[in-house]
Amino acid sequence: MGLPLDAVLAQAMLGLTQGAFYAVLSLGLAVIFGLLNIINFAHGALYMLGAFLALIGLNQLGGWIGAPDFQINFWAALVLAPLLVGLFGILIERTMLSRLYKFDHLYGLLLTFGVALVLQGFFTNYYNVNGTPYPGTPASLRGIVNLGFMYFPKYRLFALAASLVVCFITWYVIERTKLGAYLRAGTEKPELVQAFGINVPLMITLTYGFGVALAGLAGVLAAPIYSVGPLMGANVIITVFAVVVIGGMGSILGSILTGLALGMVEGITKVVYPPAANTVIFFVMVIILLVRPAGLFGREV
């Protein structure tokens, strides 16, 4: 095949950024699933919410509060938007999800699906379905950088690095700290952890808040690359589900690696066989289901 190697390499690197978003999103899903045993269908919508908060903070907030010059810049949004999304998640957990723990876990999926529809429908009413570009990329992150083997957009490199740092911190907290030990114990035997005097319901609430804050962060990071639109969440969440099926949710590190690898696979497919770029991850899922039904890092039988 006469494929130019540097084109493949370039797409693989671009795919790696997309993979970093998959990693952050599937990591959030895995953290939530570990403790709450539900799949958060609203994850994509909350990713979208994060992106919209960044966009609104930059373009509209000033107008709303009567100070047209006031702007939440990218760096502030990177902190504020995930916090707000996390708080919103805590609200969802406290008012709705917490009522469902005693029922079949599928109800949690259905409830969060409803939340996703509400958010998506709401933003569809006020914003362009095809997306609005986010103009607030900081000047220091514009332009391209020479990686030695290729030129790469600076911002994408930053998004990739930021995602990896967030993934690493999450992994470290869960696997190497006392708080993480409580979390892991809560995943295995919540009653026992409760008996040791640890406030498990609070831990569950905060975990959900943290998981969706990760989605919000991914949304802010994605805003300057993809335009911000009401459908961005729905489009990404189904792919992330496939990522989660491929990796299995038993391992934090597994979620991260699977996300990164599949982003690259998707990127490479864009050069090798463009029509399959949207579906290649689903086909990988089919293959994995056939040869290793429990997923690459799965523990369930």
């Binding site: 709705m96 469902l100 259905l110 409830l111 409803g114 529809l117 998506q120 429908g121 009413n125």
Partner: peptide, 18 residues
């Protein structure tokens, strides 16, 4: 009412599940 339908469908989902 356009895409408010999606919002109403979503709310119906939430109410039904709860």
């Amino acid at each position: 009412i356009g895409s408010w339908v999606t919002v109403i469908i979503g709310l119906t989902f939430i109410v039904c599940v709860l």
